[in-house]
Amino acid sequence: MTRPIEQAATGTIFGVALNYHSQLDHKLAEFREAPYKAPPTKPVLFIKTPNTRNRHEGSVVFPASCERLQPGPSIGVVIGKKASRVKKDGVLSYVAGLTIVNEFSLPEDSFYRPAVKAKCRDGFCPMGPELVELADIADPDQLVLKLYVNGELRQEGSTADWVRSIQELLVDITEFMTLNEGDVLITGTPGGRVDVKPGDQVTVEVSGLGSLTNTIVAE
């Protein structure tokens, strides 16, 4: 069963950085150096503020003051009911369903402290077009994500490469923070982010969830 994402994803949008081995492993040597000295042991979170909300077929503005812009194919977990200190058994009962997210960002220097200026520009978080209930998804841990720019495949990954599953993320996060109905948890982006430019058409395709398309326009 599906429904328009605007009806379901009405709350706060939280992102998880470094949740794909293809991205984390590439950074391990850097994380062992100062100032980090060790890779993260818990989910690295950031927020996509309300002004970042965007939709299927909406335009994403390339800021005039910036040189580069990167899409971030991802899967959004939409919370279906209040979740606080949940246990792993039965944790998926707190999930209303999944949707496609394209988590746009300017290139980042720090993954431990994602920059608000890089993440929270207007329209930098297209979602949708629909919420797909978990019952209609064969295996959330085996979904394939593909990013197309002007019809050309530019990035690909699988949720089999997740560092933490949906269950593990919800257990870790709700240990210290309550998630409410309508909140969205962006589960990360595979390694290999690419640059896009004004005029590009960007599509995220996820097996079982459909596709999300946006056009990049100059400011």
Results as ranks from 00 to 15, higher is better:
residue 3 R to D: 06
residue 4 P to S: 11
residue 5 I to Q: 01
residue 5 I to D: 00
residue 6 E to F: 06
residue 6 E to H: 08
residue 8 A to V: 13
residue 9 A to F: 05
residue 13 I to L: 12
residue 15 G to K: 01
residue 18 L to G: 07
residue 19 N to I: 06
residue 19 N to E: 07
residue 23 Q to F: 11
residue 23 Q to I: 05
residue 24 L to G: 01
residue 25 D to Y: 07
residue 27 K to G: 00
residue 28 L to R: 10
residue 29 A to T: 09
residue 32 R to G: 04
residue 32 R to A: 04
residue 33 E to W: 00
residue 35 P to L: 01
residue 35 P to A: 01
residue 37 K to T: 09
residue 39 P to R: 01
residue 40 P to Q: 05
residue 43 P to I: 01
residue 45 L to R: 00
residue 46 F to E: 00
residue 49 T to P: 00
residue 51 N to W: 02
residue 53 R to W: 07
residue 54 N to L: 01
residue 56 H to Y: 02
residue 59 S to E: 15
residue 60 V to R: 00
residue 64 A to V: 10
residue 64 A to P: 02
residue 64 A to R: 15
residue 65 S to T: 15
residue 66 C to G: 06
residue 71 P to I: 02
residue 73 P to L: 10
residue 73 P to T: 08
residue 76 G to F: 03
residue 76 G to E: 05
residue 85 R to K: 15
residue 87 K to N: 14
residue 90 G to C: 10
residue 91 V to L: 11
residue 92 L to K: 13
residue 92 L to T: 14
residue 95 V to C: 05
residue 98 L to S: 04
residue 99 T to F: 07
residue 100 I to H: 01
residue 105 S to N: 10
residue 108 E to S: 14
residue 111 F to W: 14
residue 113 R to G: 05
residue 115 A to K: 13
residue 116 V to Q: 12
residue 118 A to L: 06
residue 119 K to W: 08
residue 120 C to K: 09
residue 122 D to V: 15
residue 127 M to Y: 04
residue 128 G to E: 05
residue 130 E to P: 01
residue 131 L to Y: 04
residue 135 A to V: 12
residue 136 D to K: 14
residue 136 D to A: 15
residue 137 I to Q: 05
residue 138 A to Y: 12
residue 138 A to Q: 15
residue 140 P to A: 09
residue 143 L to V: 00
residue 146 K to G: 02
residue 148 Y to I: 03
residue 149 V to T: 13
residue 152 E to L: 13
residue 153 L to R: 14
residue 155 Q to T: 02
residue 155 Q to I: 03
residue 161 D to C: 08
residue 163 V to M: 04
residue 170 L to K: 03
residue 171 V to R: 00
residue 171 V to Y: 00
residue 173 I to P: 00
residue 174 T to G: 02
residue 179 L to K: 00
residue 180 N to S: 12
residue 184 V to D: 04
residue 187 T to H: 02
residue 187 T to C: 13
residue 192 G to W: 10
residue 192 G to C: 10
residue 193 R to G: 08
residue 196 V to L: 11
residue 196 V to T: 11
residue 196 V to C: 11
residue 198 P to R: 12
residue 199 G to E: 11
residue 199 G to S: 09
residue 202 V to I: 09
residue 202 V to Q: 03
residue 204 V to S: 09
residue 207 S to V: 12
residue 208 G to W: 06
residue 208 G to M: 09
residue 208 G to E: 07
residue 208 G to I: 08
residue 210 G to Y: 11
residue 212 L to G: 00
residue 215 T to N: 10
residue 217 V to W: 07
residue 218 A to L: 14
